[in-house]
Simulated scan of single mutants.
Amino acid sequence: MEISANVFSSGISSIQAGQRRVDQAAAEIAGNPVAGPPQAAQTPAPNQVDPSSGAAGQGRADLSESLVALRVGQHEAQAGARVVRTADEVLGTLIDTKA
């Protein structure tokens, strides 16, 4: 029985880690500033900063990383759920075999 308890514990830990990753990524996504409507391409004057570079570009990169982390967390939680489901099925089969 100890083996199955370890498997269940491992699966539940994976679900919890995935949920934490999803929560963190969702908070980062929610904290990202919302971009306005796209503007026509304009060449900035020599003394102006190009809005498509720098902070705006960094925000898109952060958003992309957060979206990837969100998806990784989702898959991590799903994998943990599969571990728990499989362990439950195996344990049920073992109990049916002994009964």
Rank of each mutant, 00 (worst) to 15 (best):
M1E: 02
M1I: 03
M1V: 08
M1F: 03
M1P: 03
S4I: 14
A5Y: 06
A5P: 02
N6I: 12
V7I: 15
V7E: 08
V7T: 11
S9H: 09
S10M: 12
I12A: 08
I12K: 06
S13A: 15
S13K: 12
S14R: 14
S14D: 13
I15P: 06
I15K: 13
Q16Y: 09
A17G: 04
G18F: 03
G18I: 07
Q19E: 15
R20M: 10
R21W: 02
D23A: 15
D23H: 14
Q24H: 12
Q24R: 14
A25P: 02
A26C: 03
A26V: 09
A27S: 05
E28T: 10
I29R: 06
A30R: 14
G31Q: 04
G31W: 02
V34D: 00
V34L: 05
A35N: 08
G36F: 01
P37S: 15
P37R: 14
P37I: 12
P38V: 05
Q39P: 03
Q39F: 06
Q42F: 01
Q42S: 01
T43K: 11
T43W: 12
P44H: 05
P46A: 11
Q48I: 08
V49N: 07
P51G: 03
S52W: 11
S53A: 02
G54W: 09
A55K: 09
A56T: 13
A56P: 03
G57P: 04
Q58P: 03
Q58F: 10
G59S: 10
G59R: 13
G59F: 02
G59E: 10
G59A: 12
R60E: 10
D62M: 14
L63S: 08
L63I: 06
S64E: 13
S64L: 10
S66R: 01
L67S: 05
L67A: 06
V68R: 00
V68E: 01
A69W: 00
A69K: 01
V72F: 02
H75M: 12
H75P: 01
H75E: 06
E76Q: 15
E76L: 11
Q78F: 03
Q78M: 13
A79M: 04
G80M: 01
G80P: 04
G80D: 04
A81L: 07
A81F: 04
R82Q: 08
V83E: 13
V84Q: 06
V84W: 08
V84L: 05
T86G: 04
T86C: 07
T86E: 01
E89R: 13
E89V: 10
E89D: 07
V90M: 12
V90G: 01
G92Q: 06
T93Q: 15
I95K: 15
D96Q: 14
D96F: 12
T97F: 15
K98F: 12
K98L: 13
